[in-house]
Design a protein around this nucleic acid. Sequence first.
DNA 1: CTCCTCTCTATGTCCTGACAAAATATGTCA
DNA 2: TGACATATTTTGTCAGGACATAGAGAGGAG
Lengths: 251, 251
Amino acid sequence: MDRQANGALVPDVTLDRTSPVPLYYQVATRLQQQIEEGDIPVGSRLENEVELADRLGVSRPTMRRAISYLVERGMLVRKRGVGTQVVHPKVRRPVELTSLYDDLLKSGQAPRTEIREFEVRPAPDQIAEALGIPFGAEVTWIERLRFAGDEPLALMHNAVPLDVLRLHREDLERNGLYDLLRGAGHVPRMANQVVGARTASAAEARILDEARGAPLLTMTRTAWDAAGKAVEYGSHLYRASRYSFELNLTS
Amino acid sequence: MDRQANGALVPDVTLDRTSPVPLYYQVATRLQQQIEEGDIPVGSRLENEVELADRLGVSRPTMRRAISYLVERGMLVRKRGVGTQVVHPKVRRPVELTSLYDDLLKSGQAPRTEIREFEVRPAPDQIAEALGIPFGAEVTWIERLRFAGDEPLALMHNAVPLDVLRLHREDLERNGLYDLLRGAGHVPRMANQVVGARTASAAEARILDEARGAPLLTMTRTAWDAAGKAVEYGSHLYRASRYSFELNLTS
DNA sequence: CTCCTCTCTATGTCCTGACAAAATATGTCA
DNA sequence: TGACATATTTTGTCAGGACATAGAGAGGAG
């Protein structure tokens, strides 16, 4: 019924209409696989939407939605009147919102964290403003030192509003802050970051095992969940000799 | 016909069906205005899709597309079975891909650029690899010093493949590099950036009017156009005392 | 031979209609 | 009164059709 013998054999259609996972998503995933495996070479044009939809046995809107999904992720490019092309694989991931902990985990280095300070106290005005909470409202204030292997990598300061998450020191020793936030249902979804640089003070140098005057990367961030509620403020110092930020931007 | 007297007055419907600008976009723009002007308060729930569509005289898919557009831009949040909410205004712009020149223009400071070097020459291997062009292929190589007001701000090095754009020194003196790229039809759409820090060498310090050993922000970037073609490689140095990167991340 | 126009193709926009699923509100029964 | 089942509301998914519009190439006129 949904198979046509138009010369070439139709590759196994793996769509499952009884599955709870949306059709358009199944189609998109299937397309993505074919692209990543090289079945559809980089730079080549896809079949046109109508034929593709026909061949897979879905409607054109569904097909379009699948393609749109991959276009938004930077994998395909559409041109009206021309067709849809596969773009260079080098640029396929948009910016991600990860914590240093996640970054280290992915790169295979064993992250270790030393909690140097942990207390509940009123937020300084500047931080209260960044978080959008009343002046003087209480937050959990944390100072942590992050190691990669044996060497210190970053000195991190965080403030978490009490009504977002009631932090415990033991949890923080085992998990990254972002994991805990996610677990509490406050998934960080948007963030504003400012990245700068300065030289290390004597105290900072001692903690980070650097020379005084060594260059440091600074990063301050406020993160919000999907509902727009501020869930975390952070002000971090990274050893520039050991760390840099990598970003993939789009648009 | 398309106006109903259901208690409150229907605000002037500004949709123009003869206009070439898509209906869904007109609707989205209109919604965005109402949100930004506070007509629809932060945190409040929108009318449901069906009623909204009815009231504006468009179909539900069109209405959905308009809403989806604003959801993707981080302005609205949808929850099935609940409704659509306006999120906090603080987090509404995704990452943007701009050049320093654009940044300065927007912030009202008069940007000035001094071209210190300008030549066509074979790309160093490292840069050729970043651009994905053959080793030894020729590029336009530029060194520029960027001023904000009277003070130097950044020392910038760029490489542009010859087949992307045949640069002229005079053009570059009047326009930002990204403007020129856009004008040539190679709109930068994706980029990979690495941000780090180091201290200034004696030569760099002299050029940037800093003390030797002063902290500098480093940024190297490769940018691609929509078709995945690499259009620019850049390696820049910023005075940390005068500049920092601001990023808005999502997801 | 060059330039214009026309046609063909592919994506872009928009509609109507329908059912599914999640979250909340309501109602019923013990 | 309280807990469970049910109804309602709202977004999510999907179909199929219609017309608009941009890009590219073919063909004809000068």
